[in-house]
Measured scan of single mutants.
Amino acid sequence: MDALKSAGRALIRSPSLAKQSWGGGGRHRKLPENWTDTRETLLEGMLFSLKYLGMTLVEQPKGEELSAAAIKRIVATAKASGKKLQKVTLKVSPRGIILTDNLTNQLIENVSIYRISYCTADKMHDKVFAYIAQSQHNQSLECHAFLCTKRKMAQAVTLTVAQAFKVAFEFWQVSKEEKEKRDKASQEGGDVLGARQDCTPPLKSLVATGNLLDLEETAKAPLSTVSANTTNMDEVPRPQALSGSSVVWELDDGLDEAFSRLAQSRTNPQVLDTGLTAQDMHYAQCLSPVDWDKPDSSGTEQDDLFSF
């Protein structure tokens, strides 16, 4: 819950932080000083300027060897085509990944977070970031790969997607708890209302004896509580940590079903599988986004697919 609360507080303090972009060759504004600060901008989305290598189908939802083989196929196909790589912007948030063309600003792909089953910074092609997700059109699994400016960037994108998945799962947990509370309150309110109706004398007997209905007592009954809980029953509950912020979080049926399955089948359902080692994760978390744009010590960066 700490990640969720800190993310909400950060967004309320400075929503404009989320509009910064990394990996864009110096076009961005001043960047936060450390990885923790940038992680807090996830709610509205972190932007990464990358190059799209392509996509291939895979048979399993996750796995280092599986993704490595898929990336190898994608890279080989991209090299064989001889075409310049498409420059894209990857927007990562707890909602998922939005992929747009840098030149036309046209939407290429919009992947809900619950469809993503794996992401990684490839070991062999260490400047490549990739994720595996279920197609929104059918049940097939797709591996999408992107060329980053350097290994640090690939690791940073991988960690960002993993963190977005974690925050999304926490949102789901909060929403589920809130819905259970509202359902319980609604049920209790309905029981109270039913009890009051059972003990209320029939209207005919009131008229016969000349008694008047006590409207004041009726007004004191917990009807307002019942209506408050039943009027918006169809509205999706939102985490309290975000009250007053500009973010509107809505959970669709697909996300609810997917996270429910994860909660039942996995020990740590909030953790998205990645190909990063503990050492890689520690190294990337210690980086400032400013470091992502620094040239690798191995030599001059080449803006070309064939540089790796």
Rank of each mutant, 00 (worst) to 15 (best):
S6P: 12
S6K: 14
S6Q: 14
A7N: 14
A7I: 02
R9P: 12
I12R: 14
I12K: 08
R13M: 14
P15K: 07
P15D: 02
S16Y: 09
S16M: 14
L17H: 14
L17E: 12
L17R: 10
K19T: 10
S21G: 05
S21E: 08
S21W: 08
W22L: 07
G23A: 05
G24Q: 08
G24P: 10
G26E: 08
G26M: 01
G26C: 13
P32R: 15
E33K: 08
W35P: 11
W35T: 08
T36K: 15
T36N: 10
T36V: 15
T38S: 15
R39G: 04
T41R: 04
T41S: 05
L42A: 03
L47H: 01
L47A: 13
L47S: 09
S49V: 12
L50W: 00
K51W: 01
Y52T: 07
L53W: 01
M55I: 08
E59W: 05
E59R: 10
Q60G: 11
P61G: 05
P61N: 14
K62Y: 02
G63E: 07
E64D: 13
E64G: 12
E65S: 05
L66I: 09
L66M: 08
S67Y: 00
S67A: 10
A69V: 10
A70F: 01
A70T: 02
K72I: 05
K72H: 05
K72C: 13
V75G: 00
A76G: 13
A78D: 00
K79N: 00
K79C: 01
G82F: 13
K84N: 07
Q86G: 08
Q86N: 13
K87V: 11
V88G: 03
T89S: 10
V92R: 00
R95C: 03
R95L: 05
R95D: 05
G96L: 01
G96S: 13
I97V: 15
I98Q: 08
L99Y: 12
L99A: 15
L99E: 01
L99T: 14
T100C: 07
N102H: 08
N105D: 08
N105I: 02
Q106K: 11
Q106W: 14
L107Y: 10
N110E: 08
V111D: 01
I113S: 03
Y114N: 04
I116P: 00
S117T: 07
S117H: 13
T120C: 02
T120M: 07
A121C: 07
D122T: 00
D122Q: 00
M124V: 08
H125A: 00
K127E: 00
V128P: 00
V128K: 00
Y131L: 01
A133W: 02
S135Y: 10
H137V: 13
Q139N: 15
L141W: 12
H144R: 15
A145T: 01
F146C: 10
F146Y: 09
C148S: 13
T149G: 11
K150V: 11
K150F: 14
M153R: 07
A154I: 01
A154P: 02
Q155T: 05
A156R: 14
T158P: 12
T158Y: 05
T160W: 13
V161Y: 05
A162N: 02
Q163E: 08
Q163I: 10
Q163S: 12
Q163R: 14
V167C: 11
F171N: 05
W172V: 02
V174I: 10
V174T: 01
E178Q: 07
K179S: 09
K179R: 15
E180D: 14
R182E: 09
R182I: 15
K184A: 08
S186R: 04
S186D: 02
Q187A: 04
Q187N: 03
E188S: 06
E188W: 01
G189N: 07
G190H: 07
D191G: 06
V192W: 02
V192R: 02
L193M: 11
L193D: 05
L193C: 06
A195S: 03
R196I: 10
R196L: 08
Q197R: 13
D198C: 02
C199H: 08
P202Q: 11
P202Y: 03
K204G: 14
L206P: 07
L206K: 07
V207G: 08
T209V: 10
N211E: 09
N211F: 02
L212Q: 07
D214P: 06
D214V: 09
L215T: 14
E216D: 06
T218G: 14
T218F: 06
T218M: 09
T218Y: 02
T218N: 08
A219I: 04
P222I: 12
L223R: 12
T225H: 08
V226T: 06
S227Q: 10
N229Q: 04
N229K: 09
T230V: 06
T230A: 04
T230F: 11
T230R: 06
N232Y: 04
M233C: 09
E235F: 03
P237N: 10
R238Y: 07
P239T: 10
P239F: 11
Q240C: 04
G244D: 03
S245A: 11
S245P: 01
S246Q: 08
V248I: 14
W249A: 09
L251N: 07
D252E: 05
D252N: 12
D252T: 09
G254V: 09
G254Y: 03
L255A: 03
D256L: 02
E257S: 05
E257H: 04
A258G: 02
A258E: 05
F259L: 04
R261I: 11
S265D: 10
S265L: 15
T267S: 07
P269M: 02
P269I: 04
Q270H: 15
V271L: 12
L276F: 11
A278C: 09
Q279P: 08
Y283D: 05
A284Y: 11
Q285L: 14
C286I: 09
L287T: 06
S288K: 05
P289A: 01
P289F: 09
D291G: 11
W292M: 13
W292F: 05
D296A: 05
S297C: 08
T300S: 13
T300M: 12
E301Q: 07
Q302V: 11
D304I: 09
L305C: 08
